[in-house]
């Protein structure tokens, strides 16, 4: 353990991990919706920093761009549009009984993974090896080109699906047909007038 603490990288890890876990904790417990989203920003920024620590630069900046840049804004929009209560709100979470059950389940999950990882990997060392973006690009467009195409189709489907779902229906059918009928009858009258 002492050995572990002498490495500067591990101090950096602690500095990143602490705000990360705290941010995640506050994000799922906060009684203010907007705060909850802002805590998520902290967590995601920390995860980006963690990726930098592991040498995955491109992933780190993708997280910053996509998540912190776009997804968070989407969440804030979602909150605004659904008129979620913006101030302090006690009814944001379930009752204490449900919370207890959920806490037990997620605690058990955490314990399970921790035990499995410690028994499985022990003190396996890993060394950060920076991956250049060009390598990522080469790999993505050679080895993983088909998954890449599939993801692009998924994104397209999500785009169309999002539009279809969120779009307001056009005017009531009754309205449109009556207005159309009106226009037609006017047209007929005009023709009749000419004749």
């Amino acid at each position: 353990m002492n050995d572990w603490l002498t490495q500067a990288e591990n101090w950096a890890f602690i500095l990143i991990a602490l705000p990360m876990v705290l941010g995640a904790w506050r994000s799922v417990t906060s009684r203010n919706v907007v705060h909850s989203v802002l805590f998520l920003v902290i967590t995601l920024a920390a995860s980006a920093a963690l990726f930098l620590l592991l040498g995955a630069e491109f992933v780190a900046w993708s997280v910053v761009l996509v998540y912190i840049g776009a997804v968070i804004v989407l969440f804030l929009f979602g909150i605004m549009i659904t008129r979620a209560p913006l101030g302090m709100e006690t009814e944001l979470s379930h009752s204490n009984q449900t919370k207890l059950g959920a806490a037990l389940v997620s605690g058990a999950l955490f314990a399970l993974i921790t035990v499995a990882v410690i028994t499985g990997f022990g003190e396996t060392e890993i060394v950060s090896n920076p991956t250049r973006t060009s390598e990522i690009g080469q790999s993505m467009f050679e080895r993983f080109v088909i998954p890449f195409e599939v993801v692009s189709v998924v994104l397209l489907a999500a785009l169309i699906g999002g539009i279809v779902l969120a779009r307001r229906d056009p005017a009531e059918p009754g309205d449109s047909s009556s207005s159309l009928g009106g226009a037609q009858s006017a047209h007929v009258t005009a023709e009749g007038g000419e004749a």
């Binding site: 449900t98 059950g101 959920a102 389940v105 997620s106 058990a108 999950l109 399970l112 035990v115 499995a116």
Partner: peptide
């Protein structure tokens, strides 16, 4: 909750 609990228990059994 039930699904997660069942999963945790099953995986724990597996581990």
């Amino acid at each position: 909750i039930l699904i997660f609990a069942a999963t945790v228990i099953l995986v724990a059994g597996l581990v």
